[in-house]
């Protein structure tokens, strides 16, 4: 079996199995955790508290104007590379074909040249993110293996993808195999590291918003 076939076949299968197992384990396990019991009645009723919670899910995704000078750069970096990742993952034709082969759904794609430029920008932003983490005294102290490894697996997929597109460093089939294997690695790491934030971020904001709204805190 060639490396490319291994990457597209057994390795991908194992990675998907680990990913699905891990994500459901952590999601269900977290959702069903025992919450602190609120004995008081919600200030403005359950429905309003829930709606305000939803609002917090969105409003807390934007930098607070009071802190924007201090946090703006980091948040802008974060937004920019996430948008880049979304475009590269969702609008590169071979990626859409990959998704179609798994789930049977597809959508229009962007020209490969544009996606490549966005991928290069995304890679640059990921480097800036790493530099910021290393240069920022507080952030550096807060960082652990999980932060760096999550950055590594994300960046590795982008780098190997760019190498495959540019046919740089090895033969195309080898580069494509590396790219898919790096994605397989990302899938395996996903549920157990901070990449899981993709699943947690909005539910946790909404739930926190709901609890605060029950107490009458403004959204």
């Amino acid at each position: 079996m060639e490396l490319l076939e291994f990457a597209r076949g057994p390795a991908l299968k194992v990675a998907l199995v680990v990913f699905c197992f891990g994500v459901l384990w952590r999601l269900v396990g977290t959702v069903l955790l025992r919450y602190h019991r609120h004995l008081s009645e919600p200030r403005d009723g359950y429905f309003k508290a829930f709606m305000l919670g939803l609002l917090v899910g969105g409003s807390r995704s934007w930098p607070h104007k009071q802190y924007i000078k201090r946090t703006g750069y980091g948040e802008a970096l974060g937004y920019a590379y996430h948008i880049g990742l979304f475009i590269v993952i969702l609008f590169f034709a071979p990626h859409v074909l990959f998704i179609k082969s798994l789930f049977g759904v597809s959508w229009p794609t962007l020209p490969s040249g544009i996606v490549t430029i966005i991928a290069v920008l995304t890679f640059t932003l990921l480097l800036a993110v790493l530099f910021r983490r290393l240069a920022h005294r507080v952030l550096r102290r807060l960082s652990n293996f999980d932060d760096y490894f999550s950055w590594f697996v994300t960046t590795l997929v982008i780098v190997t993808g760019l190498m495959a597109t540019a046919h740089f460093g090895a033969r195309y089939e080898t580069l494509l195999a590396w790219h898919i294997l790096s994605f397989d690695l990302l899938l395996i790491w996903y549920p157990f590291g901070k990449l899981m934030h993709a699943f947690y971020i909005f539910p946790s904001r909404i739930i926190n918003g709901y609890f605060l709204a029950r107490k009458g805190a403004p959204s």
Binding site: R8, G9, C20, F21, H95, F98
Partner: peptide, 15 residues
Amino acid sequence: AAGLIGSLAPAGEAA
């Protein structure tokens, strides 16, 4: 670019 995993059933079972 297509995956060569055949069916998604094992992933569903893992979920």
